[in-house]
Design a protein around this nucleic acid. Structure first.
Lengths: 127, 127
DNA sequence: TTTTCATTTCAGATTCTTTTGAAATATCGA
DNA sequence: TCGATATTTCAAAAGAATCTGAAATGAAAA
């Protein structure tokens, strides 16, 4: 053993600069303590998973223009009803959109959270 | 362009307010024209897919504290080498992290894009 | 009431992502 | 050179997401 080691994680041989800065932040334990909790990470990754599909991003971009009923979204995307319904369900579950029945139709609009993300998506048009 | 029709998409029966605002933005065609291109949507959704996993978000949060070699990341996460390597590969391919060999180790750090996302993830600690 | 229309739900098939354990690569120190 | 260590790669298996077409729901018009 390297008994004169002043670092907490002496059991793990490391590159010098990593070891030094790791020590400065409290070693493995200190680093671990700074990380977001698993519940938060799970929620955040679920949000990203809802955004991880081109069709769904396109739906958000459409709804950023204006609220729309399912049949218009379908006309723009040119996909089957059930497929669209599936993707709308994913976005709804992620709290990015909300639907309100109006007579024979259901009109979907962005939630506040959906607005924020749609903005980010549409803004990116340049890069 | 010269049309007698008041609405471009008269074939599609719509709720009144959707029809009106849809007309104001140029009908189905006008709306379609405002949307981001498929190539951009694909790139953006690929980025979100890379972020759509709690382990990977945790890795980004770790690297927001400091650059780290694989063995430290592994010690914090407590997962198998090959599994970690897979997730590092996903993040690397999405251009969120980059690895630099240093002797026997590979030290990973956030890219500029990775920094921005890691910030967003860590900032969310309250909500 | 019956029909029609917009939308959702369901089950099965398909495709994509992730996990696993073993083998490969590559670098260091002796 | 050898052996140890850090990391990646690979193929197969497991799991999750998505697609499909058919059937169900529910509101409105006839």
């Amino acid at each position: 053993m390297a008994e004169d080691k002043k670092y907490q994680d002496a059991s793990l041989p490391l590159p010098p600069d990593v070891e030094e800065s790791l020590c400065r932040c409290g070693g493995i334990a200190g680093l671990t303590g700074q990380l977001p909790g698993d519940d938060l990470l799970k929620r955040e990754s679920a949000l990203f998973r809802a955004l991880a599909d081109p069709l769904r991003l396109k739906i958000l971009a459409m709804l950023a223009v204006q609220p729309l009923c399912v049949c218009v979204i379908k006309a723009v995307l040119g996909i089957a009803d059930s497929k669209l319904s599936y993707h709308l369900g994913v976005l709804k579950k992620a709290n990015l959109i909300a639907g309100e029945a109006q007579g024979n139709w259901i009109i979907y609009r962005l939630t506040a959270e959906g607005e924020a993300w749609a903005q980010q998506i549409v803004d990116d048009n340049g890069s």
